[in-house]
């Protein structure tokens, strides 16, 4: 069970959070201009990496803010947390 350093509240138990999947997948600005394949890529395709992964997390039972997190899925070490809109640490 992780301890997650919420960028708004500080360190909290993982049970307060929910994971929202892969981060930095922006909703297309002009969906109508996309082909079926391009839209499907946005809609369905997510990475599931063994290693360093960028994830969205929500402090669901706390401040309810969304933020991003860099986690190594092979050892669950959290390498960084940062607010929505902030630049990710260099991959």
């Amino acid at each position: 069970m992780f301890i997650i350093n919420c960028p708004y509240c500080g360190e909290r138990d993982q049970t307060e959070f929910s994971c929202g999947g892969e981060a930095h997948i922006e909703r297309p600005k002009q969906p109508t201009e996309l082909s079926d394949d391009q839209w499907a890529e946005y809609l369905f395709m997510r990475k599931n990496i063994k290693g360093v992964q960028f994830e969205r997390w929500n402090h669901a039972h706390g401040c309810r803010k969304w933020f991003n997190m860099v986690r190594d899925t092979s050892n669950d070490k959290i390498q960084a947390v940062y607010k929505m809109g902030e630049k990710p640490p260099v991959k």
Partner: peptide, 10 residues
Amino acid sequence: SKLEDYLQTE
């Protein structure tokens, strides 16, 4: 939650 998600992130 879904509406909050869109408001905060998209």
